[in-house]
């Protein structure tokens, strides 16, 4: 499989002198689902912005195997335009690209149906619940048929039940579309449930301290969330994170 993103000694120091990312290297395979976990303030979001091209690394290189504008980003906040209807929000990337109206209508309708928002095209964001706003945000991200989907703690502000439901739906959508997904979260359970691979980051300046392949047999569903294999993987990553925050003292 080819690489979707190659990070080579990528480091980021802000103008204020704060070093957010220690030089780190990693390769993300095309079509894979990778989660990044780490303590808060470790530079996860900075890394995602660097991968998106929204922020330039101070050292190293980022190679993306994706044509321009085929990267989508989902923020923790749904980040919808409050003055526009759900349909107009979802249509935004296509409008900016100057696509014809007929194509926009068709693709927006399809994207809304796939996230379960058919019937809400004409609603305004303030009329939707938090979970529905996030669904609209995901519809906007997938309406372009992206190659690379970057998600920055998208479900962190949602309640547990909505979050589990959106995890299931996101997984189903990924299985249909096979975008390359990089998913930042501070929930270990969410990371393990969704991803094929979990990168664990250290406290600031962030670097990758562990790279775990997640091998879970069978369908990822509610039963899996209770299985031993799942909880073992979570415990393993939880231990790694705890060590990163407070390194074990040598006797």
């Amino acid at each position: 499989m080819s690489a979707a993103v190659v990070l080579q000694d990528v480091g980021k120091t802000f103008a204020s002198g704060v070093q957010a990312l220690a030089p780190l290297s990693s390769t993300i395979k095309a079509g894979s689902f990778t989660s990044i976990v780490g303590p808060s303030g470790c530079g996860k979001s900075t890394l995602l912005r660097v991968i998106a091209g929204l922020s330039a690394p101070t050292t190293g290189r980022v190679e993306r195997d994706a044509p321009p504008h085929s990267t989508s980003f989902v923020f923790q906040d749904a980040t919808l335009m409050p003055w526009a209807t759900v349909a107009a929000n979802v249509a935004l990337p296509l409008r900016l690209a100057g696509r014809p109206d007929a194509e926009i209508t068709e693709r927006v309708t399809e994207a809304l149906a796939r996230v379960g928002l058919d019937g809400f095209a004409g609603s305004f964001p303030h009329q939707l619940s938090g979970g529905m706003k996030m669904r609209a945000s995901i519809a906007r991200a997938m309406v372009t048929g992206p190659k690379l989907l970057l998600m920055d703690e998208p479900f962190a502000a949602l309640d547990e039940f909505t979050r589990a439901k959106l995890n299931d739906d996101l997984l189903a959508l990924w299985q249909q579309n096979r975008w390359t997904v990089i998913f930042v979260t501070h929930s270990i359970r969410e990371a393990v449930f969704l991803a094929e691979r979990v990168l664990v980051m250290s406290p600031r300046p962030g670097r990758v301290i562990a790279d775990r392949a997640i091998s879970l047999a069978g369908h990822r569903d509610d039963a899996l969330r209770l299985s031993h294999a799942f909880t073992d993987q979570c415990a393993d990553i939880s231990r790694l994170l705890a060590e990163a925050i407070q390194p074990p003292v040598n006797p």
């Binding site: 091209g53 504008h69 906040d77 980040t79 935004l92 900016l96």
Partner: peptide, 11 residues
């Protein structure tokens, strides 16, 4: 974030 999104989509 919306500004970033506009940049990302080449507005």
């Amino acid at each position: 974030n919306l500004k970033d999104l506009f940049r990302l989509y080449g507005a």
